[in-house]
Design a protein around this nucleic acid. Structure first.
Lengths: 345, 345
DNA sequence: CTGAAAGCGCTTACAG
DNA sequence: CTGAAAGCGCTTACAG
């Protein structure tokens, strides 16, 4: 069904079956015909422009409502240019890190007149299709691409990418987080408080420590303290909790636990509580990210905080520059973590 | 560089300065000209279609890269129809409720082939503009519109709306959460555990209780127990904590605290801890929402959980129906809360 | 106040 | 394997 559109005139193919589901979507020409006016008169009415009589406008709006007319964003965008669109890729919205980042980006983007399309690549069943759709719709894509960033450039149409997990050697623009200085501050504090047997609670599968875990161990080494690195099966609170439970049950338990991120630190805190340990008296615990949730637990969580607003600021700045093809901008930004001492360490 | 596109001819207004920033974006015709082919050959190359020689394709891609060509989503969308676009409006991404909802919606939307545009109306500096932009870009808008839902229909172009905070009398489609049965379960449990002096910790300014707070008080009344309703200045953990601190300091402190939501319950828990109270021995605490974070605190939080996947399912079903103009679908859905007993009550 | 024409950038048949 | 034509749905000048 949905007969061909005659366009310039003649017999409009009558909205087929009145069963709404099978009906071709009404266009500006349908409304014009129904109201007995020209298409630009419809445009005037729909866009609240001047130069149209109240009566005509009423008739047009009436016809539009009758036909459930909605202007096509493509038709309009083609001529107006349309709003800027930012694609934001996060890892897993259920890790509070993602929404705290997203909140900052979404807010600043709105202020700058960009819309934000959100993709959760961690929860996706078909990440490839999702990313393909995103790059087709967005002017610029920003976020945690992980392994997917590799094939980005090879694609057919090249949407600019801003990597948030960028290493030093990325080919794309990027905003990198640098915890090293803050780790130094934290470790100095811990050592000053008497910590001598720290454990680094690192994330995920790869047997070798993450860059972050390695930096933690290295910082202790500079103080003549050897840190043991243990790995959780994932960076979730649950897995962190499980590993912590094992570690604190040892004959010689650690006196500090540095987690890869706040979520893992919360899992560690929970395990310590269940083991009957007092934090920070028996063992000190700290995380990384600076999540708000860390202020709601007991004891409140010491952490290395990310300045999400700063990340968002760099992101939008880069997005604007990349969209405009501005080559003069510094494509690599670094935002340092900052030590936030609370009760747990 | 980037010569003007001759198109139908004559003097194209020359791309201004060669400073990239001022350059008009390249079109398919520019690429075609640069590669010495027709536009449909460019289409073939860009879209990885058959019927093009390897050498030609190479030349086209080369030219495209040279000109930083990116196909216009509007031009393409106009002819292909484009992907479905869902606008998701949340209240405040920093309340963990939002991301848990968003995670469910985003995941299901992706599975169904919809893109999601995210707007945080709570953090917005200019909600009206934001919503206007959203309704222009999205096929359907879903979320917590609050007061903004009022003027929705009066707008010029009417994008279908699915209200998530819909009362009974909404003119739009909606998915409503119904806590009443679960509140009954919770209160029965509390009374059975000996609770006689409960306090309902309600949200926000209006002096009269929220529907939810009223339902809590009513449920107690059915058991012959009178509940006092107190109001926090906002539904944040901080304000809930402040009010709780006052309440528990009384001569006759309550033996149970029912919070408007989990975030407030967490604030209450925190205040109880600081007051030296043991939860649940001295006082029982419960919230509403079923947030994951409730499993990470000590004691773990008893709550009335929302089935976010169920909400997402109804949402996508409605979105599809509204976009297709399908009138035969039930436009009002109800998802009940479910009591989840954990340690705090 | 209203309308006829041109054009935005792309893809889809259809010819060669 | 390649190209000329038509058309997607809208807005922006320009005439009347």
């Amino acid at each position: 069904m949905a007969g061909p559109s005659q366009l310039t005139g003649a017999d409009d193919p009558a909205p087929a079956g009145s069963s709404a589901a099978g009906r071709r979507r009404a266009t500006i020409l349908d409304v014009a015909a129904a109201a007995g006016v020209s298409r630009q008169t419809v445009t005037r009415a729909m866009n609240d422009m001047s130069g149209i009589s109240a009566e005509t406008k009423r008739r047009v709006m009436e016809a539009a409502r009758e036909l459930s007319y909605r202007p096509s964003r493509f038709g309009r965008g083609l001529v107006t240019g349309g709003a800027r669109q930012l694609g934001l890729v996060v890892n897993d919205l259920r890790n509070p890190y993602s929404p705290e980042l997203a909140a900052a980006v979404v807010r600043l983007a709105a202020d700058e007149g960009w819309n934000v399309m959100l993709v959760d690549i961690g929860l996706a069943s078909d990440a490839d299709r999702l990313l393909a759709s995103l790059r087709e719709q967005a002017d610029v894509v920003v976020g945690y691409l992980g392994e997917w960033s590799a094939g980005w450039g090879s694609g057919l149409a090249t949407t600019p990418l801003i990597q948030l997990d960028a290493g030093e050697t990325t080919e794309h623009a990027g905003v990198r987080l640098d915890p090293v200085a803050a780790i130094g501050d934290l470790v100095a504090h811990l050592v000053a408080m008497g910590v001598r047997c720290p454990v680094v609670l690192d994330a995920s599968a790869p047997r070798e420590p993450s860059a972050r875990g390695a930096a933690m161990a290295a910082a202790f080494r500079e103080h003549g303290v050897e840190a043991e690195v243990v790995h959780a099966a994932s960076s979730s609170a649950e897995h962190a909790s499980a590993v912590t439970a094992q570690v604190v049950r040892r004959a010689a338990p650690p006196d500090a636990l540095l987690a890869f991120n706040d979520l893992m630190a919360l899992g560690a805190l929970s395990a310590c509580r269940h083991a009957g340990l007092d934090v920070p008296r028996d063992i000190r615990v700290a995380g990384v990210d600076g999540l708000t949730i860390g202020t709601l637990v007991a004891p409140t969580l010491t952490t290395l905080a990310v300045d999400f607003d700063e990340v968002a600021r760099h992101t939008l700045e880069l997005a604007v520059a990349l969209r405009d093809g501005d080559a003069d901008v510094d494509r690599f930004r670094v935002v340092p973590h900052r030590l936030v001492l609370r009760e747990s360490a």
